[in-house]
Design a binder for these strands. Structure first.
Length: 420
RNA sequence: GCGAUUGUAGCUCAGUUGGUUAGAGCGCCGGUUUGUGGUACCGGAGGUCGGGGGUUCGAGACCCCUCAAUCGCCCCA
């Protein structure tokens, strides 16, 4: 018979284990705690939606829609897509579930997202994000609140705590749609004059996505980027005031920020505030948390014009910055020296756990091996069960520095004695 | 889609200018000690050296193809 070959994991997916999984959980738990402080309401969203939810909001023709989504037909012939982001689904729910009645609505969620991309450091095909959005708030205070929450989250995660340069808030404004369009035209005119000197990629970008030339990594482009027209020259008075209110709000809240006039968004529905918390500790994937104001999105989904702003952050990248988090060890390990008292081993281990003590039971292999394993796990105490004069004897050996108060549990446990 | 680097035991890795039967540590399994002590010692299992082809008397090593992983480019919702 042919040997059965173990299926390989799917490219870009990951099995997270041990200290890395603890770090992942720590990020999520911290996010949950902080979002409650800012009174963001928890939402759970479907992992797939009709494809049009994403194609209409992101733009039919963009590469991300045409090449980087996991789309498929279900058995009814409907085109569905695994969510590549949270924002579009939340916007859809806002329109279909009557959430307008709660406006301005602050919501938060987290979970897996799917993008068909080439995996690299901190970048996977199934990845996970935390996400926060404020829908129905046109005021710059909403942007400020989101940014202050993001800043507190990163600080509570300890990112940059002992290392002030580890992550910095880069902030920019894209203005309203008129300012943005004027800026875009000026950029195209400026770069067209020097087109031949630009990198090949940027020559393509000139037609498709001229704003992206600004954050090109190619040295040939950087010299021209430095002297390129800046958004500030094109901002309306209203847009200037909006950005001013955001920055003064950040200052009032004590959040450090730094203006980055080259920071742009890839999609057209973004307006005004754009921001990224950037680190240099994760290789090429520098953005740890990013977002902006997307006042244009709701209309593309058939809703009334609705101002909104939000951010998302990759849990894997945050977990990498947090570093490995130790798995909590057992406080007590119960070693059954004699199999005749296995039932008492099961019973007393359960009693310990019910009283809130983290406990493990070791009852396989030779007694020697059981003790070896127990000692290696470095519990605070080892509880050894053996047979003595027809009864179950237990000895508690304190192995760690900390006291383990389990005498009460042992005293109230009803020992059943060894099996015959 | 493009590029660079790396694939040897379950894991982390050695393996000399190509030379007999491919090694270590950890983990796993078994054994030694009948003991208030143990994390020690001894032993064992486990590898078609990612896969395929080629060069050679001889390939884990050199060449070609392929697959995968990692990192980067593109893209980034």
């Amino acid at each position: 018979m042919a040997k059965i070959e173990t299926p390989r994991p799917i490219r870009g997916t990951q099995d997270i284990f041990g200290a890395e999984a603890e770090a992942f959980a720590h990020v999520v738990e911290t996010f949950e705690r902080v979002r409650r402080l800012y009174r963001f309401r928890r939402v759970e969203m479907p992992v797939f939606e009709k494809t049009e939810v994403f194609s209409r909001s992101i733009g039919e023709t963009t590469d991300v829609v045409s090449k980087e989504m996991y789309s498929f037909e279900d058995r009814g012939g409907e085109s569905l897509t695994l969510r590549p982001e949270f924002t579009a689904g939340i916007a859809r729910a806002y329109l279909t579930d009557g959430w307008q009645q709660y406006a301005p609505l602050k919501v938060a969620t987290h979970g897996p997202l799917f993008r068909y991309e080439r995996p690299q450091k901190g970048r996977y095909r199934q990845f996970h994000q935390i996400d926060a959005e404020i829908i129905g708030a046109a005021e710059p205070q909403a942007d400020v609140e989101l940014l202050v929450m993001a800043d507190q989250l990163l600080k509570e995660l300890g990112i940059g705590a002992n290392d002030p340069g580890a992550v910095t808030l880069n902030l920019n404004t894209l203005g309203d749609s008129d300012s943005r369009e004027a800026w875009r035209s000026a950029l195209v005119a400026y770069f067209r004059d020097v087109k031949a000197s630009l990198s090949e990629d940027s020559q393509d970008r000139l037609e498709k996505n001229p704003l992206r030339i600004l954050d090109s990594k190619d040295e040939r482009d950087k010299a021209f980027v430095a002297d390129a027209p800046q958004i500030d020259q094109f901002l309306s008075g209203e847009a200037q005031d909006f950005f001013g209110a955001v920055t003064s709000g950040l200052d009032a809240a004590g959040v450090a920020w730094s203006r980055n006039p080259a920071l742009v968004r890839g999609l057209d529905y973004y307006r005004h505030t754009a921001f990224e918390f950037i680190t240099d500790r994760l290789g090429a994937q520098g953005t740890v948390l990013g977002g902006g104001r997307y006042d244009g999105l709701m209309e593309s989904l058939g809703g009334a014009p609705t101002p909104a702003v939000g951010w998302a952050a990759g849990i894997e990248r945050l977990a990498m910055l947090v570093g490995d988090v130790d798995e909590a060890g057992a406080e007590v390990i119960v070693v059954v020296e004699n199999d005749a008292v296995l039932q008492d081993g099961i019973g007393v281990t359960s009693a310990l756990r019910r009283s809130g003590v983290a406990a493990d039971l070791l009852a396989s292999g030779s007694p020697r091996k059981r003790f070896d394993k127990a000692v290696k796990q470095e519990p605070k105490a080892i509880l050894a069960l053996s047979v003595d004069n027809g009864a179950t004897a237990h000895r508690l050996r304190i192995t760690g520095g900390d006291e383990v108060a389990i005498e009460g549990v042992l005293a109230s446990y009803d020992w059943r004695g060894p099996a015959e």
